[in-house]
Design a protein around this nucleic acid. Structure first.
Length: 257
DNA sequence: ATGGTTGGAATCCAA
């Protein structure tokens, strides 16, 4: 089973690239983030023509998440399942695909450590851990895929000095990610590859992609039951090249299930 | 050189 995730930064702009990527990468499940679409505008039929069912949770303009699957798609849940106040943004969608409970997540950016948005980011991550416990057990097949807006370790950013005082690398954010993993999740890409300079995001500005100034902030977290089944894994940097690329590259892991 | 680019909005905000 090939499980993939991609922050497309506007599916409207990226649709041609997304269809191209799905066609050659052949994911069984693809989680999308930052579709920036309302639900009525999501192109279900175009993906259906390639053999995928799809569910989307979006409000237009900002955020927006989706799950595509060609191995079944059921029990879709929009946002958090805790019954508390709805999230202010459309950042989470969950479904069962081919025996795996899959979450597509777009974790809040945080903006700056002094902002309310940073508090929102930390609380959002804590709420995500609760969400998983409500819908699944760490002994099940669970995968949480998406843009976490956190670099798990210093080696996941191109230059630690450039991030002093910034979000994405603070102990609080990394602790929130560690709490999520402590529930019973493993960073599948890191389990497969231990090298430095393996990034998933490069800022559009200042030639960052060309100079390889990137960050590894897109993750596929899998439960213990799946962690031992990770085969090949890849960040497809080719998808970050060429005409009208997203600022994120797609990431996939192959699971022997 | 607190720079740079992109997307979606409205002529600025978020990333």
């Amino acid at each position: 089973m090939r499980l993939a995730t991609w922050n497309v930064n506007s599916l409207k702009v990226r649709m041609e690239r997304a269809l191209e990527w799905v066609s050659y990468a052949q994911p069984d499940i693809l989680c999308l983030q930052e579709t920036k679409l309302g639900d009525a505008a999501f192109p279900h039929m175009a993906f259906s023509a390639l053999g995928y069912e799809s569910v989307h949770h979006g409000s237009g303009q900002w955020n927006g998440v989706a799950i595509l699957s060609r191995v079944g798609l059921e029990d879709a849940v929009m946002g958090f399942a805790d019954g508390a106040d709805p999230d202010q943004d459309t950042r989470l969608i969950t479904a069962r695909c081919g025996g795996v409970r899959v979450c597509s997540v777009y974790v809040p950016n945080g903006r700056s450590v002094s902002s309310d948005h940073y508090i929102y980011k930390l609380s959002w991550l804590a709420r995500l851990t609760g969400h998983l416990g409500l819908l699944s057990s760490p002994d099940d097949h669970v995968a949480v895929c998406g843009d976490f807006n956190i670099a798990p370790e210093d080696r996941d950013v191109w230059d630690t000095a450039a991030f002093v005082g910034s979000t994405h690398v603070t102990p609080e954010e990394r602790a929130a990610l560690a709490s999520l993993e402590a529930w019973g999740l493993v960073d599948a890409f890191r389990a497969r590859w231990q090298e430095d300079k393996l990034y998933t995001y490069w800022d559009y500005r200042a030639g960052d992609f060309h100079e390889h100034r990137g960050m590894r902030i897109d993750l596929i977290l899998v439960s213990r039951a799946l962690a031992g089944k990770v085969g090949w894994a890849l960040v497809d940097r080719n998808a970050r090249k060429g005409k009208l690329p997203s600022d994120h590259a797609p990431l996939f892991v192959d699971l022997e299930v």
